[in-house]
Structures are given as structure tokens and as C-alpha cells.
């Protein structure tokens, strides 16, 4: 959408002078080339491939809606959808709550703010990295940090592996995701800085305590930022891949308990050589994420408050 808007703007500019137009296009060329070659073309290609049988090593053959029909009877598709929805619906609110809490604590003009902000942002820089997911295997693995410490208090068997138990494996990945609350935190901090101090001063004069101030001033004025973070984090969570891939060694196991949607798409395409089916799965995800975002926008008018 934004690309179209920008193009429309350019067209208006062109009425004023063709020269300006040309210069703008030259400057935009690298970005446009990237959009067309790296984003738009593969997007179109995958849509086309989703209507084919494409065993990766052989040329694709058109098979109509077969892939989409097959999705409905695919048990592992339903499993991956369930895993992903659980992940999105549990981890996103937790992560945003933690990010907001830390942002509010940090927003008090304390000494060394930059230092703490960096420390809390650090996990987000590393969180989606392979190294941290490897670390997660050690922390929650058999004889790992968590099991060993719990065993000291007689709460668990030291041999217990939390990542290899289908009852807890997804929880460990949700924890990993919640831990990487840095980027919404930074956005919350910026949002908090935008709220004029005079509101708080006026409230304090009227005798409102910190808690009341938070619920009646901070929260309403922050809703646009919360909404933004919610939309972005939900979309991001739907696309999670690296953590599950590394923690389960690419299998989505044990017993498909961490079979994230994008991991399943990847398995179908690159491991089981069904690129056509994988493309269809990817487009179904586009529709699901689109639906979630649309619902989000629909309900936003009931709770997001723009202080214009």
C-alpha cells in the first residue's frame, strides 16, 4: 500500500516538472529494484506455484486447486496452525505486558537509563539468533540449568528435558519470545515520552495516585502505540521460525509440539520437495495473518484513543 501511495505522490510531483520526477526515480531506483526483484516477483511466483505440483527437482505442472483442497485434510497442517495460534495468542500479550512494564519503570529519568535500556534491548538483538536458540537447548535441556536448579530443591528430575517434552516444549519457546521484549519496549518508551507532563501534574494536584494516573492518563494516551505494537508483534509471531527450527533441530518435534506454521511450510518445500504445496500453505498463512490484522483494525476503533 505504501508503495502505491508513494507512486501516487510521485505522479503529482511530475505535474510540476518532469525533471524532478526523473531525479526522484533515480534515487528510488535501488529500492524499486529491490521491491520488484526481491519481494514482488517471488510473491507472484509463489502464487503461481501454489497452483502447481512442483517436486523441486523437476519442472512444475499445473494442478489447479489440488493443493488448497489437500490442505483441508492435512492433519499436520491443523497441528501446525494450532501450535502457531497458541504461540501467538499467549506470547504476544505476555511480551507486550512485560515490555510496557519495563518501559514505564525506565521512563522515570533514573541514572544510567541508557545503560539499562541497552541491557534490556540486548535479548532482542540476539533473540532470533541461532546462538540464543542453541543456548535455550542448554538451559532447558536434560541436565540443563533449569532442571539442575529445580532438582536441587527436589522439584524435578535432573534428567528432565523441557524442550523434549511435548507438554513444555512450546512453553520454552514462548519464554524465549517473551524474553525478547526489547523492540516493543523501545517503542513504548518513545510513546511514553510523548505524553505531556502537565496531565500528570494536573492529576497529582487533584489527588490522583500513581496507579490512577497510569490507568487514566498513561494507558489511554498510549493506546495508539499499544495498537501498533500489537499489530506488528502478532504478524511477527505468526512468522516465527528460527527458534523452533534450532530448538527442535528442524523437526518441529517432539511429536510435532513445536511445529510452527512457517517451519511446516519450510519442511514441505525444502525437505519433502513439495514446493507447490508449500506455496499454497504460505498463501493460506497470508490470508490468516491478513484476517487477524483486519480484525485488529476493526476492534481498534473501540479502544484506541487518538489525542488530536
Amino acid at each position: 500500500m505504501s508503495a502505491l501511495n508513494e507512486l501516487a505522490n510521485l505522479r503529482q510531483v511530475s505535474d510540476k516538472g518532469k525533471k524532478q520526477n526523473k531525479t526522484a526515480f533515480i534515487f528510488l531506483a535501488p529500492w524499486l529494484a529491490g521491491l520488484v526483484l526481491i519481494t514482488a516477483a517471488p510473491l507472484v511466483a509463489s502464487l503461481v506455484l501454489s497452483f502447481t505440483d512442483y517436486p523441486l527437482l523437476k519442472a512444475p505442472t499445473f494442478n489447479g486447486l489440488d493443493n488448497y483442497i489437500k490442505i483441508f485434510s492435512d492433519k499436520r497442517f491443523r497441528k501446525s496452525l494450532k501450535v502457531t495460534l497458541t504461540y501467538v495468542l499467549v506470547s504476544t500479550p505476555l511480551q507486550l505486558a512485560l515490555a510496557l512494564a519495563i518501559a514505564v519503570l525506565l521512563n522515570r529519568g533514573m541514572k544510567g537509563l541508557a545503560f539499562y535500556r541497552s541491557i534490556f534491548y540486548l535479548p532482542s538483538l540476539m533473540g532470533s539468533s541461532v546462538a540464543i536458540a542453541m543456548l535455550w537447548r542448554q538451559v532447558f535441556g536434560s541436565q540443563g540449568l533449569v532442571s539442575t536448579v529445580l532438582a536441587k530443591f527436589g522439584l524435578a528430575d535432573p534428567a528432565q528435558s523441557w524442550i523434549a517434552d511435548p507438554k513444555t516444549s512450546l512453553v520454552t519457546i514462548i519464554l524465549l519470545h517473551v524474553w525478547t521484549f526489547g523492540s516493543p519496549m523501545v517503542i513504548f518508551l518513545a510513546g511514553l515520552r510523548q505524553i505531556p507532563m502537565m496531565y500528570y501534574e494536573a492529576a497529582a494536584v487533584d489527588g490522583a495516585n500513581k496507579w490512577t494516573q497510569f490507568w487514566n492518563i498513561t494507558m489511554p494516551l498510549l493506546t495508539p502505540v499499544i495498537f501498533f505494537n500489537l499489530v506488528m508483534q502478532i504478524i511477527g509471531a505468526f512468522q516465527s521460525f528460527t527458534q523452533a527450527f534450532v530448538v527442535s533441530n528442524g523437526t518441529g518435534g517432539p511429536v510435532d509440539s513445536t511445529l510452527f506454521y512457517s517451519l511446516y511450510v519450510y519442511q514441505q518445500g525444502f525437505v519433502q520437495f513439495r514446493m507447490g504445496y508449500a506455496s499454497a500453505l504460505a498463501w493460506v498463512l497470508v490470508v490468516i495473518v491478513g484476517a487477524f490484522t483486519a480484525v485488529n483494525f476493526f476492534f481498534s476503533k473501540y479502544w484506541v484513543f487518538y489525542d488530536d
Partner: peptide, 27 residues
């Protein structure tokens, strides 16, 4: 704000400890 600073310090240290715990070997 002192209390907050102390709290932050504790949390931050906790995070760092988690990062150091376990004998992670780089792949």
C-alpha cells in the same frame, strides 16, 4: 527512582546470568 534503579539492576543482572548459564557452545 532509587528503588526502580535497584530493581532494574537486579533484573538486568538476572538476564545476564541467564545468558551466561549453561555451557553453550557456539555452533
Amino acid at each position: 527512582s532509587k528503588l526502580a534503579t535497584a530493581l532494574m539492576g537486579g533484573l538486568a543482572a538476572g538476564l545476564l546470568l541467564t545468558a551466561c548459564g549453561g555451557s553453550a557452545e557456539p555452533s
